[in-house]
């Protein structure tokens, strides 16, 4: 049901609408606009918890977008805008989880899984490799021919 259930859930419980941010804002330059848009996309709305700040039309999301905008307008860095929200709402607002001891497993597990998989392939091939030269024996060849014939007849 993917996105459907998500939106359904939001609508039923919290009246989270489907309209994204519609504030008309002016920016100093395109770079600042891009920073703003990226930031609000990577931050999670606390009311409509399955939308980013950018996508949510919850009242609080609007206010928080304002805060982010003001912070950027005052010439501060992205980190300061993020810190403003994390100070108040915790790591929950970050769609990109910070890299720390707690999230270590989250970030390295894909690599671990991949290496485990590669090791699996390597070991399988090694185990049987010495016998690689072993082609079909004469009797096996014969049986193979026979089987081929019978399957063709079918």
């Amino acid at each position: 049901m993917s996105a459907v259930v998500r939106m359904l859930a939001l609508l039923v419980l919290f009246r989270c609408g489907t309209a994204a941010a519609t504030e008309v804002r002016t920016f100093q330059d395109p770079a600042q606009q891009q920073r703003y848009e990226q930031l609000v996309k990577d931050l999670r709305c606390l009311v409509c918890q399955n939308q980013s700040l950018a996508d949510s039309d919850a009242d609080l999301a609007r206010d928080l977008r304002d805060e982010v905008y003001q912070i950027l307008q005052s010439g501060k860095s992205d980190q300061e805008a993020v810190k403003f929200l994390v100070d108040r709402y915790g790591d929950f607002v970050l769609y990109r989880p910070p890299f720390n001891l707690m999230t270590l497993l989250l970030w390295i597990s894909p690599l671990l899984l991949l290496f485990a998989g590669l090791a699996f392939i390597w070991r399988r091939s090694k185990q049987q490799n010495p016998a690689m030269a072993a082609e079909l024996t004469a009797s096996e060849q014969e049986r193979l021919q026979q089987l081929r014939k019978t399957t063709q007849q079918q």
Binding site: L46, V47, D59, L60, D63, L64, E67, R88, Y89, G90
Partner: peptide, 13 residues
């Protein structure tokens, strides 16, 4: 009125 204090307190619901 403008909810700024609410935000400072981390109010979300």
């Amino acid at each position: 009125a403008d909810g700024k204090t609410g935000i400072d307190w981390g109010v979300y619901g």
